[in-house]
Nucleic acid binder design. Structure first.
Lengths: 344, 344
DNA sequence: GTGAAAGCGCTAACAA
DNA sequence: TTGTTAGCGCTTTCAC
């Protein structure tokens, strides 16, 4: 009879070795499969033995080996999210939405950031992730890196893309930015502005939906189409653009690629002596949490990034489980009128 | 002799079954370990066989089973990050720092959010993560949920905590907020303000370092210690507090728990007809990316969250690899003087 | 209800 | 350099 001490198994180099299911079985005086049964609840075990097993588990501080389980049951409960960034508002919220939906279904989320669309860089970043046991992958294709990453996912792994514009044939959750950009541009035109200038954020491909929608609205209304300015992701880059825009008297309305850039643009405009919206109207995109607190409060387009993340995960889950489901989910962002835009 | 067609193995229910190392070996006409050798590069293989193996791998579209590898080589390359939130500035940046450092070392990051300090909630959130093969865990203990989560990590798993104040005996990377809060409060006092009011963000425990530092500075200077106001994480909650503060004529300087709250407070103050900094000085904490673009540009304390994340990961890596290293890393945030605070 | 035996897909040890 | 033999720690038949 073994004594009831909680001696740990000692590994080769003195490192305590984790208890295995066999140790538990031995201590409880039952067979290995019986321990497995109480662990998984797959089959019934008599109350007496169950009790013994549970006690042994507690005494040995036993935790089943995830790797062994995975090998035999082959149902990874992890999805990888591949993104070009994690901390910017849109990305962070999207990831939050994926994580929340995943957690609700018992899945865990793995994050991989691909910083550049460079092939080698992508390979390095992604291979570490793809060598994990994965149930599926969510790709945020808001930028070139994300788009490029998509091509590197093995075709036998369930995948879903999240973006602002529909394109490929893979399952996708989108936030229809094109329509929304069209709407807000038309709103500005309706206010009496002859045309609307545009400051774009780094596009994911040749042209983003935000820019396309803006262009489309101007064209439909027969307005002239000014050359867009290019901002980086840094809000500060908007400031320099605002200063430049202030020097151009034809600028009376500006549609910015996102709220943070709009804030920078307003700062630059105001620094140059312009009043917003009296002299120049400025609108943003995304409805950043600080948009309503800005001076003046920003007219913008609300984007439910977290919602898109959740829809994306659910699409992925359908693929993983082989459920017949929709392979596409789109939502139309809605305009929020505050006071950074006014009549000409 | 087998034909060179790329027939897929068919599983029980018609689902294509992934190729195994044995399939590759058979197709290449070599033994299983030889395939393993070219896969891992652990031992030399003759160019001829290597070529055959590589060809077979390509033809079969073979990817090694992560689960099997994990089981036998027992070196998980994944660290879990447990956080109370993922999208707020400080959290998002910290996670970004962990991810970046991890990626550089070939590790992948898993995210788990614990929304409340409720025991059951934590258990559910965490157990999915802990049942994965993990090399270690990084806990962000910026809030009660994070603090509570720490208690649920098995003691045999390497852990590191990230926070704004030193406490426990586990390895920890911190941003010394107490000292920084003291410094910025003193700065305000030095400007001639009789005392400094304080708006705090939800604390991780009884009292945060930011509040402690503020209190300490006031005490040392013999200033009266006003009752702090409590904000939520929402910037907008600062607005209501700003309005309340505007009604109190003794308020001439306000130290806010973070920049987003400071922005809300300023908005509320301005809405109530106060000028910042002429009537009331307001300072924040964190140096949020929008702080310098705010009206007026915010005086604040720069916190290198990403840096802390990186330091934390490296501490964890030392534990994982059993390297003798420091178990504690602290950094002093530095004050950034802009124009939201001025003389009394 | 329970145990014996088989096997998941890979790497590590050992011979040859 | 290469193949044979053993496992890794679990779950899953299949008898009893």
């Amino acid at each position: 009879m073994t004594t009831a001490t909680t001696t740990r198994r000692i590994g080769v180099n003195g490192v305590p070795k984790a208890a295995t299911i066999a140790d538990v079985a031995a201590r409880a005086g039952v067979s290995v499969p019986t321990v497995s049964r109480v662990l998984t609840g797959a089959a019934r075990v008599s109350p007496g033995k169950r009790e013994l097993v549970e006690q042994a588990i507690a005494e040995l501080n036993f935790r089943p080996s995830a790797a062994a389980r995975l090998l035999v049951s082959r149902r990874p409960q992890v999805v990888a999210v591949i993104a070009g960034d994690t901390s910017r508002y849109g990305y962070a919220e999207t990831i939050r939405g994926v994580e929340e939906a995943a957690r609700a279904e018992g899945y865990t989320v793995m994050i991989t950031v691909v910083e550049s669309p460079d092939e080698e860089e992508i390979d390095r970043a992604i291979s570490a992730t793809l060598s994990q046991p994965l149930a599926g992958v969510v790709v945020l294709k808001f930028d070139p890196a994300g788009v490029a990453a998509l091509a590197h996912i093995p075709r036998d792994l369930p995948v879903v893309a999240l973006s602002g514009i529909r394109d490929a044939s893979i399952p996708q959750a989108v936030l229809d930015e094109t329509r929304a950009a069209e709407e807000i541009t038309e709103y500005l035109l309706g206010l009496g502005h002859e045309t609307v200038h545009h400051v774009r954020i780094p596009p994911s491909r040749r042209e983003d939906g935000r820019t396309t929608g803006w262009r489309r609205a101007l064209r439909r209304h027969g307005a002239s189409i000014p050359e867009p300015s290019d901002a980086t992701w840094e809000p500060k880059s908007g400031q320099a653009i605002g200063i430049a825009l202030a020097a151009d008297p034809t600028v009376t309305a500006v549609f910015c690629g996102n709220d943070e850039i709009a804030m920078g643009v307003i700062r630059g405009l105001v620094d140059s002596g312009k009043r917003v919206p009296d002299d120049v109207s400025v609108v943003g995109f995304d409805n950043h949490p600080l948009a309503e607190l800005w001076t003046p409060p920003l007219t913008t387009v609300e984007q439910d990034f977290a919602g898109m993340g959740g829809r994306g995960f659910r699409l992925l889950l359908d693929e993983i489980e082989g459920t017949l489901g929709r392979r596409y989910s789109s939502e139309r962002p809605r305009m929020i009128i505050r006071s950074s835009a006014g009549p000409r």
